[in-house]
């Protein structure tokens, strides 16, 4: 398994645990007195699960298993693939940090971080599509 695929899958596993912790916190608020921002964790929970875990697992396994691009570059552009990994994970981490604070309008205002998170994840998504497209082919 290539190095980058291992990074994707292991990062995905970490997000899997973080997602379920967020899910427990959201649910625990119904029986335990927790800070207000915990109630705003629901979109973070869903995206940790859907983007951090499922999509990242798919990207990692796809990077490893999809048909080879060429003999010289079997997995397409390695630089683009690493850029996708970094942008996706930084973008998602920034969302986790900033979204609950922005939702309750906490100071200091982290709206800029949330906006940056959106841009980074958007770029990561399309970089993955672009870099994977040519590998999806008949042999």
């Amino acid at each position: 398994m290539p190095t980058l695929a291992r990074w994707y899958i292991k990062a995905g596993l970490v997000y899997f645990v973080l997602a379920l912790i967020a899910g427990v916190l959201v649910q625990a608020r119904t029986v335990v007195d927790l800070p207000t921002w915990v109630a705003t964790l629901r979109p973070v929970y869903v995206h940790l699960l859907a983007v951090g875990w499922i999509t990242q697992l798919i990207i990692g396994v796809g990077y490893w298993m999809f048909p080879k691009f060429s003999r010289e570059n079997p997995r397409g552009s390695e630089q683009l693939a690493w850029a996708t990994f970094i942008l996706l994970n930084v973008g998602l981490a920034l969302r986790v940090i900033s979204e609950p604070r922005v939702s309750i309008r906490a100071e200091p205002d982290l709206s800029w971080m949330l906006a940056l998170s959106a841009v980074l994840q958007l770029i990561a998504g399309w970089l993955f599509v672009i870099n994977t497209w040519a590998r999806i082919k008949e042999r």
Binding site: M113, L114, A115, W126
Partner: peptide, 13 residues
């Protein structure tokens, strides 16, 4: 992802 990013950006600005 584009639609999601538009909504997330809108939440910030």
């Amino acid at each position: 992802f584009t639609f999601g990013a538009l909504m997330l950006f809108d939440k910030a600005a």
